[in-house]
Structures are given as C-alpha cells and as structure tokens.
Simulated assay, not measured.
Amino acid sequence: MRRIFLVALVLLAFAGFAMAQITQPTTDVLGAHLNYGRGCTACHSPHSGTSGNGQASSVSSGNKILWGEDVSPLYGKTITTDGGKYVEVLPTSMSADTPDVSGMLTCLGCHDGNMAPAAMMKNRVYENLPATYGNRNSIPTLMTGSGAGNYMSEHPMGLNATVDCGGTSGWDCTEMNGVITMSGSASRRFVTSYGFFVQPGVYNNKAVVVCTTCHEPHAMNVVTVGRNSNSGLPAGTYATMFFLRAPYNPNDTNPMSNQTAQFCRQCHADKSNEMNGSTAGTVF
C-alpha cells in the first residue's frame, strides 16, 4: 500500500511539471521581434551589417552580429538607473570589446524611449496578457522611465551593475573570472528546484547585468530545458513571457504558483525560499 502511495505522489509531481510545460507553441517563438513581418532583418543585415543596409560607412557595425541598425546616436550616452545609483556610459563604437555592445547598445537601438520606424515598432505590447490585466495592451514597450531617454526608474544595468556572491543579498555561490557557479548548499537546491538561466555579461572579471542577462531576444514565449541546462526541471519546453530566459508565466492558473518570483530570485537570493530557511520549491 505504501509503495502505491509513493508511486501516486511521483505521478502527481510529474503531472504538475507537465502542466507547466508547453509541448508546441502556437505562435512564432520570435514573437514581437518579428516586427510586423520583417523578422530577422529588422535588426540584422546579412551582408556587412549597417553598410549592407545602406548606412554610411562611418556607422558600420562591421561583423558585430551583423547589426543592421544605426546606433551611432547612442555612442557614449550616459545612462543612470535605480534612482541614479548606477551609471552606465555606453560604448563609443560597435567594435568595443565590452558586454554592453551586444547586451545593451543594440537593444537600445529600438528600446531607447523613441520610436524606431525602421524597425516598425508600434509602441504596443504583443504579449497575450492575463485577462485580469484588462485592456492595457497599449503600454510602452520602450525603455523609458518618466519620459524619452529617462532611465532613472529602471532596473540596474551596465558595467557597474555587478552580480555578487555572498553578502547580505547574494547566493552562497562562487565567482571566477566573472562566471558564477551555484555551488553552495542553498544555491544548489535552488538550481534543482528552478535553475540558473540568467546570463550575466563579464567585465573586468566581474559578472554584470545587461539587457540580455535576463532577456533572450530570439524567443518570446518559450524556454527549452535540456540535458545541458543549469536546471533541475524535467527536460521540455516551458512557457515564458517578455523574452525572459526562464520559465515565467503570470498567466498560470495555479494560485500558488511562484515561478515568476523564482525568476527574480536567480539574482536576488535574499528573497528566496532557500536562503530564508524554507523548503518550498518551485510551484507551477
């Protein structure tokens, strides 16, 4: 009888995981970055980057991810985030060998608080939002703050926004040359329960937060967990939103779901179950 009970518990657990998985997305995974049908060429030019897009050679992106948009107006721009606590000075060229080139500068080519007509942005959210959000689908998709170019209220990012192990808010992890390993007892439990999907940039041998730390611009609504993923979740495809790199689904019908909180806890360890003595795992 006890064996039957244990088998039933295991089946229920995997059933819960199965509900969190989506086996086949019904929309193109590129989502909003299809840019009204332009697709990949909205951002990339397959021949010589900006030069191939007819831009002047002075603003050429060269071979840097064959970036096809002119981001030269952003060169050297100073950004302050989190109420001015963090200062980021954007690179002065696409050839700068820093993670804020492809991790921030390229993103801000469209998401800089101004319309980007070349990318056909419509200033509307493309996500299938929960019904409880009402009709608020005309919210800005641009990185604005209180106005164009105002980043004060944004999440810390840039070469000074480091991700640290230890201290009052960090995981019991280790960092070597900017690479974080979730090696402590609490951080290992978190990875088993959820995972460590974020991809910090590396600058001066320190892990730093850039746009692509949290966002994967090529997949809006799905995250694939495979054998090589830094996650203990069963392999499969999981729902996400807003191009986030990990399972994140506020539209989950389970009122006890904590997966959206788990995403933030990848860096904010002091808000996690594990670092507060709780044995609760990820609930889908």
Rank of each mutant, 00 (worst) to 15 (best):
L11R: 05
Y36H: 00
Q21C: 12
T80K: 12
T80I: 12
Y248S: 02
F243K: 00
M182K: 02
N177P: 06
D100H: 00
A148H: 15
N135Q: 14
F5G: 12
P156F: 04
N205S: 04
S146L: 06
L142V: 09
N137F: 02
G170V: 13
N251K: 12
G147H: 14
P140N: 06
D97V: 01
V59M: 12
T168M: 08
S58L: 14
T237P: 01
F243Y: 05
L159N: 09
N273D: 10
L90R: 03
K77A: 01
T168N: 13
T23L: 06
N135S: 11
R189W: 04
P247G: 08
P140I: 00
I139A: 15
D112Q: 14
G226P: 08
P156W: 06
V223W: 11
T23K: 14
P117H: 12
S60D: 03
G195L: 07
V125W: 00
P25L: 07
V210F: 12
G158Y: 00
G147F: 14
P140H: 08
S60I: 02
L90D: 09
H155P: 08
D100A: 03
V223E: 08
T50I: 10
K122R: 09
S229I: 04
F17Q: 03
M220T: 00
N128V: 10
K64P: 08
G166S: 11
C107A: 15
T168W: 08
A239C: 01
D252C: 06
N53R: 15
T253V: 15
F190K: 13
N249G: 06
T181K: 04
I79Y: 06
Y151T: 13
F284S: 09
S61R: 07
V222I: 03
G103Q: 05
T192Q: 15
D112T: 11
T181G: 05
T253K: 15
K122N: 03
P140L: 08
C107R: 13
A235N: 11
D164E: 10
V89D: 05
A186T: 09
S153P: 13
F197L: 00
G68K: 07
G236L: 13
S193I: 09
L244I: 01
S231I: 05
C43E: 01
E127C: 01
L74H: 06
P234L: 04
S95V: 00
C43F: 02
G39N: 13
M182I: 07
K85S: 12
A15E: 08
T260F: 13
V59Y: 06
M157R: 09
M275A: 01
L9N: 11
G54H: 15
T98N: 00
N205C: 03
L244R: 04
H111C: 15
Q55Y: 14
P130L: 02
